[in-house]
């Protein structure tokens, strides 16, 4: 769970970096998207890197979800009679939202893949399907001009941030890297920073589009 989680975090950070290219304009962003597809040629076939990443991520999702549901099931079996009254002493909101938050993120990823990768539906009447298919930049900006799409992305990114906040620190525990109070504080700090960075980094492009800060 920790290892796959760390893979996701690395992917998410790279993904975020790419997204921020949106701010550099259509040319730069479309060039970036194209480059991803031809990365490593001729050593790799076209789309090679992308497929390697997709396979790694897909396997990771399966493992991560399997581990998560196993833990969930074990927890339910480990306390089949619940407390009449139970107060949490210090548990963070993030740690308490891991399971449903994880499910939320999974559903969002499915939506996100349909939205931008598999189907690419045109949901903004101001644009044509041909424009969207031709430019990833247009595809993104067209969507983020619609308020409910932005809202979905904002909520999903908050869920992702919380998931990373607890998940990344938890991964350091599981990997056995937080063996002292200071290491624990550092791990928690890094997790919080990465989580905040992710939320902010991912939300800059859609919000910039939504509020018209990006031309066109």
């Amino acid at each position: 769970m920790a290892v796959t989680g760390v893979i996701f975090v690395l992917f998410v950070l790279a993904h975020m970096y790419g997204n921020l290219k949106l701010l550099s304009g259509q040319l730069a962003f479309d060039e970036y998207a194209h480059h991803l597809r031809v990365f490593g040629e001729p050593m790799l076939p076209k789309m090679g890197l992308l497929w390697i990443m997709r396979i790694v991520l897909l396997v990771s999702v399966v493992i991560h979800a399997y581990a998560a549901f196993t833990l969930w099931g074990r927890a339910n079996n480990a306390r089949s009679t619940r407390y009449a009254v139970h107060k949490m002493a210090q548990a963070s909101l993030s740690s308490r939202f891991m399971r449903w938050g994880g499910v939320t993120i999974l559903l969002f990823v499915i939506f996100h893949l349909i939205h931008f990768t598999i189907v690419k539906p045109n949901i903004n009447a101001d644009y044509t399907q041909a424009q969207i298919d031709a430019s990833p930049y247009i595809m993104a900006t067209a969507s983020f001009k619609i308020w409910w799409v932005v809202l979905i992305y904002v909520l999903a990114m908050i869920a992702l941030g919380m998931h990373i906040n607890h998940g990344l620190w938890s991964a350091t525990q599981t990997l056995g890297w937080a063996n002292s109070p200071s290491a624990r504080a550092t791990a928690k700090g890094i997790a919080l920073i990465v989580a905040a960075l992710t939320v902010v980094g991912f939300l800059i492009p859609p919000l910039a589009v939504a509020f018209g800060l990006i031309a066109k």
């Binding site: 548990a91 740690s95 938890s170 599981t174």
Partner: peptide, 26 residues
């Protein structure tokens, strides 16, 4: 159950055993 590093254990521990013993175990 399995551990998800929520930390309620260490907060409830009357002897204040810190959470890093779980990291050490892992």
């Amino acid at each position: 159950g399995g551990c998800t590093n929520i930390g309620e254990c260490a907060a409830a521990c009357p002897k204040e055993i810190p959470l890093d013993v779980i990291s050490q175990l892992n």
